[in-house]
Each structure stands twice: as structure tokens, then as C-alpha cells.
Nucleic acid binder design. Structure first.
Lengths: 194, 194
DNA sequence: TATACTAACTAACAGTCGTTAGCAAAGATA
DNA sequence: TATCTTTGCTAACGACTGTTAGTTAGTATA
């Protein structure tokens, strides 16, 4: 699926991700991007077909990473609490692995046009349902105390997603430690008897 | 502080808030806004000085609302757990009271220019510190079990802020019920002995 | 009735947008 | 050596941007 990119193509993709995160997709012009790299705007089109192609790569690249994480989690036979811990761990890994792309994935997807927009939205829903299923499983077995799993899954996802905003690769907390503390915080509020 | 707005001014402000939320500030043109109201773009300037003025009103209007909530909470002598519950309650009230403005407040503030941008950022920091102080108080008295209060305050805030994304005024959950369930979920994971 | 204010209009400004055409130099391949 | 591909350039396209100037009809005030 993922093709090998030339050095220049990689550089463009990374700079675009950074600028889209910092200024937003709509407020970043192709001239801004070109200047950040040190070439002319028109020269970008030797490497890509359109501005939106850049956004598509970022959004669907992240979606793919989240799906891979999900498949890894689902390939194992685990109890709901352990599975939730692993899901959090994997999710944190994906976000911290590229905070810039995570920010764009979270906030700029609405600038996709059809049919990509609809595809993207349904992928997001699918991922939500994967987490929801873990919560429901734990609820069914009596291991989780959840009055409203929709609310729980959404607050869980917001906590996980907001990571891009404050995680620093050179900070004191490693992704694994963040995942553990996040999981503790969520699960100790969920488990019936502790 | 808040001035009385004519009917037209109110209509412009509300439509702008909605469009800024749906399309983003940068991707919403003054012609879009004018068309949504049914007048010409130039006519907007009979009611406002610039496009950014609209964004400023939304961002600082919300900031003001959050500060009012904070002052109400801080005016009472309460234990940390009860104070946190009240802070959550008040925060949820502010967000649910205007989800469109909340969305713009959260995502579009970076399009403010200086000096408003710096002022805005410091106000956000101040509000974060208000919540942080509650958590630290509860930690100091041994009522809260918090390994890392920075992480806790940021996940709390993300859960609270993401509300704008899924709260529906005509939905089944009332703001008060949402606040209670959110608080239960957070606090039952925090209290040392329950 | 004369005056001033309000809120709309048309027309236009200078600048920016994404993108394309056409061209040139360099390197790889035959 | 001749040809093809890659990657950059300059110039320009039509559309769109926020905003201003100047005007007009209607309403409120003196």
C-alpha cells in the first residue's frame, strides 16, 4: 500500500504536515510550502498532483496506522480490561509516533472532498466501534461499570487524541509510561471492585 | 463588557460562528458569510470592522464565560472533590450553552493575530492552572491519587472540551447528567478509598 | 420640512490562490 | 553520443480574497 517516496517527496510530505498542523490546511498556501522547502510553488507539481493529495496522504496514512493497531489488538484473545490496556498502549504509540500527522488527521480531515470525505468518516466510525466493543464486552462480563458507553468511549478517545497537543518526544514521559498512566486513570475508574 | 447588539449584528455573529465551526475560519470567506445571511459581502462592513473582529468576539466571549464559571467555583469554600465536581458542572454548562462557539474557541484561536493571540494563550493557561490547583489541593490532602497532575488536567480538559463534538441540545442527555457522569468517571478513578 | 443616520447596494482595488504551459539543465539509460 | 526522465525554473491563467469608495433608499430626529 505505502509506496517508497523519494527524498524530496518525503521532505515535501513532512513540511506539509508541519505547516498544516501549525497554520491549518486552508491557511497554508502552496507558496508557503514551497518557500519552506526552498523551491518555487510550481516546482511542487513535479512531485504531486494537487494540494489535496497531500492532505489525503496524511489522513489516510494515519487511519491505516490506527487500523493496523486495532488488528494487532484483535488478533489476541484477551479479557476486556487487558485488551483495553493494550488498545490504549497501541493508540498512544500511533499518536506519539507522529504528533504532527495526528494533529492534521484530527482537525483537517473536513477539508477532504468527496468521495474521500465519506470514506474517511466511515473509517473513524469503525475505529470508534472497535473501542466501543471492548467497553461493552467488559460491561457484559461485569468487569466494567459503565452507565453510558457512548459517553465513555468519546471521553476516552478525546483523552487519547489530545495527546498530540502536549506530547514532546524529548520530554520526560515515554509513550509507554503515558499509556500506562492513562490506562490506570481510566480503568481504575471503570473496574467494579479494586 | 458585553455590549447590546442589534438584531442584524447578532445574526451575523451567529452565522459566522456556525460557518467558522463547519468550514474553519480561513476557509470561510466574507462572501460565504454574506450569502448565508442574504446580503452582499460589502454590506457586512456596515456592522463590523474586519473579519478577525468576528473571531475575536467568539474567542474572548468564550474565555470570559469560562472565567465567570471559575470565579463562581472559587468563591465557595469546598473540599477538593466537591470543588472538582462543581468545576466540571460549570465547564459543561459553558460548553453546552454554545457548542458552535466552543468549537471555534477550541480550534480557530490560532488565526488571531498579535497582540490578541498572546493574550488569548495566557488566558487559556490561567484556566488550566485553576483546574490544576484543584487537583493539587486534593492530592495534598490525600483525597486524590494522582501520579502526574499535568497529565490528569490535560486529559480532563480534553474530555470536557470534546463535548462540543457530540453534545446535542435535543439529545437524551441533559448537561447536568453529562456533568455528573463525567465527574463520576473521572473522580472514581481518582479517589483513594471508595 | 430639512437633516442626519442606518443599512444596504454596485464597482472596484490590490493581492493571493491553486494550477498549468513551456522551457532548461542534469543525470541515467540506450 | 543520442535519447529519455527528472526536477527545477519563469510566466501566466482565471478565480477568489478582504476591504474600501461612493451612492442610495428608508427611517428617525430636529
Amino acid at each position: 500500500m505505502a509506496e517508497i517516496l523519494s527524498e524530496r517527496k518525503t521532505q515535501i510530505a513532512e513540511k506539509a504536515t508541519l505547516l498544516f498542523k501549525e497554520r491549518g490546511y486552508a491557511a497554508t498556501s502552496m507558496r508557503d510550502l514551497a518557500a519552506a522547502i526552498g523551491i518555487e510553488a510550481a516546482s511542487l507539481y513535479s512531485h504531486l498532483r494537487s494540494k489535496e493529495e497531500l492532505l489525503q496522504r496524511i489522513c489516510f496514512g494515519m487511519a491505516e496506522a490506527f487500523f493496523t493497531a486495532r488488528d494487532q489488538v484483535n488478533s489476541l484473545q484477551l479479557s476486556a480490561p487487558i485488551k483495553l490496556r493494550l488498545a490504549i498502549e497501541k493508540h498512544v504509540e500511533v499518536v506519539t509516533n507522529d504528533v504532527n500527522a495526528s494533529a492534521v488527521f484530527l482537525h483537517e480531515w473536513r477539508h477532504l472532498s468527496e468521495p474521500e470525505l465519506s470514506i474517511f468518516k466511515s473509517m473513524r466510525r469503525e475505529y470508534e466501534e472497535y473501542l466501543m466493543a471492548i467497553l461493552q464486552e467488559g460491561k457484559a462480563t461485569g468487569q466494567f461499570n459503565i452507565p453510558n458507553e457512548k459517553l465513555t468511549v468519546l471521553t476516552l478517545l478525546s483523552s487519547l487524541n489530545w495527546l498530540y497537543d502536549w506530547y514532546r518526544p524529548d520530554g520526560s514521559l515515554q509513550p509507554h509510561e503515558i499509556a500506562k498512566q492513562l490506562a490506570d486513570q481510566v480503568i481504575n475508574g471503570l473496574i467494579t471492585n479494586k
